[in-house]
Simulated assay, not measured.
Amino acid sequence: MPRRADDRSATRAPARLSRETIVAAAIDLADRDGLAGLSMRRLAQHLGVDAMSIYYHLRDKDTLLAAMVDAVAAEIETEAGVEAGAEAAIMGGGTAAGVEAAGNGPWTDQLRALITRARRTMLRHPWAARVLEARDTPTPAVLRHIERVLAVMRGGGCSVSLSHHALHLLGSRILGFSQDLFDDSPNTAPTGEAAAAQAAAWAETMPHIAELAAAVAHSGALGGCDDEDEFAFALDLLIEGLDRRRLAERG
Rank of each mutant, 00 (worst) to 15 (best):
L150F: 07
E211S: 02
E249M: 08
T108N: 03
L170D: 03
L17I: 08
A232M: 12
Y56Q: 12
S53A: 15
M68T: 01
S9G: 02
R112A: 11
G94T: 00
T95K: 02
A74M: 05
E83P: 01
S172N: 02
D50K: 05
E83S: 11
D7A: 13
A101G: 14
A200R: 14
V99A: 07
L169G: 08
V82S: 09
E193G: 03
I54A: 01
L170I: 08
R8K: 09
V49R: 10
L132A: 03
A36L: 03
T11F: 03
R120Y: 04
M91R: 05
H164M: 15
R112Q: 11
A118V: 02
M206E: 12
L247C: 06
R130Q: 09
E240D: 15
M1A: 13
T11H: 02
A66N: 05
D180I: 05
L235Y: 01
S172P: 11
L65R: 07
D184Q: 12
A221F: 00
G155I: 02
I76S: 11
S219F: 07
P140I: 02
D60F: 05
G241M: 05
R42E: 06
F177T: 03
V216D: 05
A15H: 14
H125S: 10
E228L: 11
A24C: 06
V216T: 14
A10Q: 09
I209Q: 04
L35I: 13
P126N: 04
G241T: 12
G176C: 01
L64R: 08
L29H: 06
H208C: 08
L17H: 04
A195N: 03
A84K: 05
A51C: 04
P190Y: 00
A24Y: 06
L247M: 06
L175T: 10
H125C: 15
G224A: 09
S163L: 02
